[in-house]
Every structure is written in structure tokens, then in C-alpha cells.
Write a protein that binds this DNA or RNA. Sequence first.
DNA 1: CGTCAGTTTGACACGAATCAAAGTGAGTGG
DNA 2: CCACTCACTTTGATTCGTGTCAAACTGACG
Lengths: 230, 230
Amino acid sequence: MPGFREFEAQELRFISSFKTGELVAETGTTLLSEGSHSAHLYTLLSGWAFRYKTLPDGRRQILNYMLPGDLVGLQGSVIGEMQHSVEALSPLVLCVFQRDRLNELFRNHPGLGFDITWLAAQEERMLDDHLLSLGRRTAVERAAYLIAFLYHRAASVGLASPRNLYLPITQMHVADTLGLSIVHTNKTLRKLAGKSLIRWLDRSCEVLDVAGLMELAGWSGPAERRRPLI
Amino acid sequence: MPGFREFEAQELRFISSFKTGELVAETGTTLLSEGSHSAHLYTLLSGWAFRYKTLPDGRRQILNYMLPGDLVGLQGSVIGEMQHSVEALSPLVLCVFQRDRLNELFRNHPGLGFDITWLAAQEERMLDDHLLSLGRRTAVERAAYLIAFLYHRAASVGLASPRNLYLPITQMHVADTLGLSIVHTNKTLRKLAGKSLIRWLDRSCEVLDVAGLMELAGWSGPAERRRPLI
DNA sequence: CGTCAGTTTGACACGAATCAAAGTGAGTGG
DNA sequence: CCACTCACTTTGATTCGTGTCAAACTGACG
């Protein structure tokens, strides 16, 4: 997706003019947690992470996955208290910004301010898709959608070859994303494997037939990611 | 919530300098639909609306509700093609903007650009809550959360007295929001009524015990809506 | 060799969907 | 003013999908 590449260039300018530090995090690290007040905002430079929320009794829901180019903690930075947690799925490299310089950014680099809004709108679009999935798709359809979705996301940042996707997630992650139990998730993934749509390896997933997954899920793929001219 | 009022004042400045027209819509009107390219962006001045997506076979999922002060169609405006539809739940008054003047806004009024990002972040936060609900709450908990959520939203724009909330929605809307069937939605709402948490009237809902609903749902209410200083 | 996280499988229970049908009330036309 | 319709709500019976429980399997790692 050329649109993303374009954006990435912009993003890099943003980074170089505003960054206050760089951060490396290991797999499993919790970067931000629900209820905390973070003075920082991050851009993910490399690696996979995910955002989640939990209910008081511990039930967990994964909200979305984060890939290079994504802003981490924008919400918290703008609103105040973090409403979700962020955890690393692989070693990460992050670019750190001071939260209070966001205003400055908007003042001095309106184009980049627009970019941030564009990113927020993209995130919104993904969340909309996830909501449709959780609300109205069956377990198999949800799983198909999720894998196709992650495949597209990975592909958009050059992390997936057309047929092979290394997803650093466990079935527990899949379960907490789809709103299913771990047992049923396993049975569901096996159904997809039975249809030769995927192959589940230890802690990863090979995508055999993206088009098949998308058709099963009734999902036509992400909207064009072309960024409007500024 | 005083924060919102504050924002509204900003919003009104925004409106006066950038609006290109005003629009009145009747209940049931579809303002924007999935797949269309809209040249406009709206601010809701009065009334209730909702956003939804559908699967190819017609299953519908309501994504969120819109109240006065909300931006309608930001996503579509920034990204291109609309990925969801918007429908009026009551007569609406909207303020219309040209989509292509959004860049101009960011350039000339960075503070307002920041406001838009803030609004987008708020929407994101709400969608996160909804995802947690659909993924990890039971039917009764979901219904309790939804009504408490709508109550808070209505209260934040002065539409609800502490104990009485007129929601212009049917159980069909509730079902499509909670990801449940209409029959089960009815049985679920009756359970809430049985616990004296709500009373369902024809096409509306009286909230008897917000705190009880929130506790049942394990939801502690929306984050502070205070807008950061610019 | 044992431990531990993750995956897999089968039996059973429960929550939600579906099917079917009736009740309610607002609006409409005779 | 009275059927009549239509959208919405309500209820009961039954089916189906998913959760829960229990246990075994696998491979990495110490």
C-alpha cells in the first residue's frame, strides 16, 4: 500500500523534529496501563503490540493491534487518564514524545496535526470493523476476519509476504480479541485449518488463503489508505 | 459536565467561521451511507443519531450514538469513502462543512484542529468501551452498560434530568447495539426492569438507578471530559 | 527428567438464537 | 366512531452455539 509509505515519510519528519527519546521494550512489557497518567506519547517504530481493557473481575478484551507507524497513547495524551493498557507482543522500538508538546505540534505543523487526526480516524475505522465483528459475526467468521485483518495490516507495513504471516500471538490473544473462550477459539481455528484457510503453528499463524478468509467473513478489506493531499 | 460546555463554545466559533450551510433532517433519515463519497462533514446541533455498519447478508451493528456537539462523517471526510451509515433517531439540525476546507481549518485554526483530534480521541474511547462490552460482558451486563452509557452522554449535553431519560430508540436499536437478537434483548431488558433499574416505555426508557446499572455492568463511567488547555 | 505455557480433545451445561404466536397502542381509512 | 393495519413489545417452546470442566498432549527450557 503506497499510501502508507508516503505517510511514513511524513511521520519521520515528525519524529525528527519532536522526539524526546527512544525506547526499547521487550516482549510482554506493559507500556501503559489503565488508570495511569502518562506524560508520554509514543510512535511505534518496529514490533507488534496490542491495546486491551479489562473488567473489574479480570475478563480481558483486546481492542486492537499496533504496528510500526501507529501512535501509542494518543487517547491518554489528549484526554488525560489512560483508559486502556498497552502490551508488547514482540520486542519494540518506540519513539517518545512529551505529551504537552502536542499542542505545539498542532500550532507549528498543522499538516502533521492533520496527519494525527487522519491516524485517529483510521483507528476509528478499524474499531468500527471490530465492533461489527464482535456484535454480528459468528465465531468462525470472527476468526476469519481477524486473521485477514491482521494479514492486511502486516502487509501494509511490509511485514507479510503474500502467503506467509508470522503473527507473534497465542490462541489466548485470539480468544481475548474475538470475545470467545480459549477452548472454543481453538476449535474455531481448527475449523479454519480444516478448510485449508490457515495453518496454526506454535505461537504463530500461516495464512494460506486470504481471499477465502475474507469471503467467509464477508469482509471486503480495509478502505483505501491513501492520505488526502494537504 | 462543564468541560463539554466549554468545548461547545469553541465549537460555535468553529461553526460560525467555517460553516457552509445548515441542514434539518427528519427521524429515520439516512444522512450518510456506507460506500458513498460525501463532500460534507457535519456537526450535530440538536437531536439524536446513530452510526451503523452491515454485513453483506444484512446483519446490522450499531457502532455508536451521536448527540449535539458530535462530528458526523469525520472519518469519511478524512479517509475518503464512508465506511458506515448514519441515521437520524429524532429530528436533527446539522451544520454543514465542506470536506476540503478541513485542511484550511488545520492551517488557520490549529486550536480547532486540536479540538477535532480531541473529539476523535473521545470517540475512540467510547468505541473501546463498546468493544469491551460486546466481547466480554453478558447480555444483562451489556444492556446495563448501554443504558448507563447513554444516560451519561445525554446528561453531558443536558438532555437528561437526573432520573429521567427519554431515549428515542426501540428495542431493535438496543438489539443491534448489543449484538443480540430482538427476542433476547426484550427478555434482557425485562430483567433490568425486574430489578427496578429501568422502566421501558414505548420507544423510550426511564432510568431508575444509574449507579445500579453501572455496578451491574462493572463500568465506572466515562473518563473526565475536561479538555486540555491549548 | 520435570516443569510450564500453550494447544488439543471430549462431555456436558448454559445462554442466546430461533420459531411461533399473541398482546399493545398509535395511526388510518371507512 | 369503529375496524383495521402496522410497528413494536411480550411470552413460551425448542434448538444451537459457545462456555465450562476435565484431562491429555506437545515442545521449550532448566
